[in-house]
Amino acid sequence: MTQVLTSLVAVVGTLLGATLGYVFQRRSTVRRDRQEAALSFSNAITEVIRSQQEWYHRKDEERGGPEHRAARFEGHRLRGIARQAVNGLTFHLPDPELLRLADELLRMASGIHEAADTEDLVSRTEATRQALRAFIEVSSAKIR
């Protein structure tokens, strides 16, 4: 009888350990995926900001020239990557507030190249960077 009870306790302990291990590993994986989605979007927006500034400066140097066209194409390419990162957010962090912030942030970053002058460029860039910081704060609170 003692051997049966010992075996039963061992089996239950093993099953409980495996189940808890699975639950904790799953939670860790979900958290990591959410972190990666938010980080990918943040990185993409940072690149969009940079490319939009480059587009603005190339436009002033030689509108329609090869460097201006290259900067414009790069700006469009990076906005596409940022849009893909929003899709990752939608999949891993489907929070309406967070997605609204992400869409607004992408819109702000995408319009930097339309600045009227250098002062407007600096203002748009700073506003976008502040919005990015707000996005990072909100997303990190939702990931925990």
Rank of each mutant, 00 (worst) to 15 (best):
M1N: 06
M1T: 06
M1A: 09
L5C: 00
L5K: 02
S7V: 00
S7M: 02
S7R: 00
L8M: 08
V11L: 13
V12Q: 01
G13L: 12
G13I: 01
T14W: 11
L16S: 14
G17A: 15
A18Y: 08
G21Q: 09
G21N: 10
F24A: 06
F24S: 05
Q25L: 06
Q25S: 14
V30W: 12
V30Q: 13
R32M: 07
R34Y: 03
R34H: 07
Q35W: 10
Q35D: 02
Q35K: 11
Q35G: 03
E36I: 01
A37I: 06
L39D: 07
L39N: 03
S40Q: 08
F41D: 04
S42K: 05
N43C: 09
I45K: 06
T46L: 13
E47D: 13
E47Y: 11
V48G: 07
I49K: 03
Q52N: 13
Q53S: 12
E54C: 12
Y56G: 05
H57L: 15
H57V: 08
H57K: 14
R58H: 13
R58F: 01
K59Q: 15
D60F: 10
E61G: 14
R63I: 11
R63D: 15
R63N: 14
P66G: 04
E67H: 15
R69I: 14
A70Y: 01
A71G: 02
F73S: 13
E74L: 15
G75C: 09
H76S: 09
R77K: 14
G80C: 05
I81R: 11
I81F: 05
I81L: 12
A82G: 07
Q84G: 14
A85K: 03
A85M: 06
V86I: 15
V86W: 05
L89Q: 00
F91Q: 10
L93P: 01
D95H: 05
E97N: 12
L98M: 08
R100T: 12
R100C: 02
A102C: 04
L105F: 07
L105W: 05
L106N: 10
R107K: 11
M108Q: 14
M108W: 03
S110V: 06
S110K: 02
G111F: 08
I112A: 10
H113L: 04
A115H: 07
A116C: 03
D117G: 13
D117L: 10
D117W: 01
T118K: 15
T118L: 14
T118M: 13
E119P: 00
E119I: 03
L121Q: 05
L121K: 08
V122E: 14
T125L: 05
T125D: 08
T125N: 00
E126F: 02
E126C: 00
A127W: 02
T128R: 07
R129Q: 15
R129Y: 01
A131D: 03
A131E: 02
R133P: 01
R133A: 11
R133H: 09
V138I: 09
S139G: 11
S140F: 01
S140L: 00
I143P: 00
R144L: 03
R144N: 07
